[in-house]
């Protein structure tokens, strides 16, 4: 049982690290601000979640588990709010996103704020 938990925790940590690294590569690789935001979204949701679940499996009893769950909950509540505020401020200050030409139908564009 103990070995099983250890293996599960290791797997979760490994997956979380891979997701975080992918997000880190994405933030350097993507062409503009709005696409970079999606890369950060990966590290913030599943990357952080997997690492915290991996830590939970290390010590599946007592107060530490509750605190880790609280950190996970706060991360999941806070990050969409922060990225929405960021995106809204960026669009409001006339930072135009780079769009794919084929999908650029004039009617769908948002009105100027």
């Amino acid at each position: 049982m103990n070995l099983l938990l250890e293996i599960g925790s290791g797997l979760c940590l490994l997956l979380g690290c891979f997701l975080c690294l992918s997000g880190g590569v994405g933030i350097l690789r993507f062409p503009d601000f709005f696409t970079r935001m999606h890369a950060v979204g990966v590290t913030d949701t599943l990357g952080a979640g997997m690492i915290l679940i991996g830590l939970m499996l290390q010590n599946p009893a007592g107060l530490v588990l509750l605190k880790l769950m609280m950190i996970l909950l706060f991360t999941l509540f806070i990050n969409p709010t922060a990225s929405h505020a960021l995106a809204k401020a960026a669009l409001r200050n006339n930072l135009q996103p780079v769009l794919d030409e084929s999908s650029n139908q004039g009617g769908d564009k948002p009105s100027k704020l």
């Binding site: 709005f34 935001m37 999606h38 979204g41 990966v42 949701t45 599943l46 999941l76 990050n79 969409p80 990225s83 929405h84 995106a87 809204k88 669009l91 948002p110 704020l113």
Partner: peptide, 10 residues
Amino acid sequence: TLTPGTVTVD
């Protein structure tokens, strides 16, 4: 917004 790949801007 929580789903990666889509962000609500406004």
